[in-house]
């Protein structure tokens, strides 16, 4: 940190917020790459991964906004990540072309 302030921990809710923002910024670049050539598998995988990450974390925020107790936010983060992985595996397995 460059000062005597020492480090501070990053709590689960902050990771959720940070990951969603990072995914959004990442999506900007990946979407451009995807538009240039939609058939590159690594770009497709990254696009799908980032969309799911961003979307699932967004659903988590909406659920909290609509009144699920904030005490559940760690569980919701875990569920959002698990649902993201599951959806990724499902979509990736389902090749329609």
């Amino acid at each position: 940190m460059g000062s005597a302030e020492a480090w501070r921990d990053t709590k689960a809710g902050m990771w959720a917020w940070l990951l969603q923002r990072v995914a959004a910024v990442g999506l900007l670049g990946v979407i451009v790459m995807h538009l240039k050539n939609p058939f590159m598998r690594p770009v497709q995988a990254t696009l799908l991964g980032l969309v799911l990450l961003h979307g699932m974390l967004g659903i988590r925020s909406i659920l909290l906004d609509f009144g699920l107790p904030a005490r559940w936010h760690r569980l919701l983060l875990l569920l959002a990540l698990l649902a993201g992985f599951a959806a990724f595996a499902l979509f990736w397995k389902w090749r329609w072309y």
Binding site: K11, A12, G13, A16, W17, S61, L64, A70, R71, H73
Partner: peptide, 9 residues
């Protein structure tokens, strides 16, 4: 408020 819940933690 970004709902990070640091306050609650």
């Amino acid at each position: 408020c970004h709902g990070q819940a640091n306050c609650t933690a």
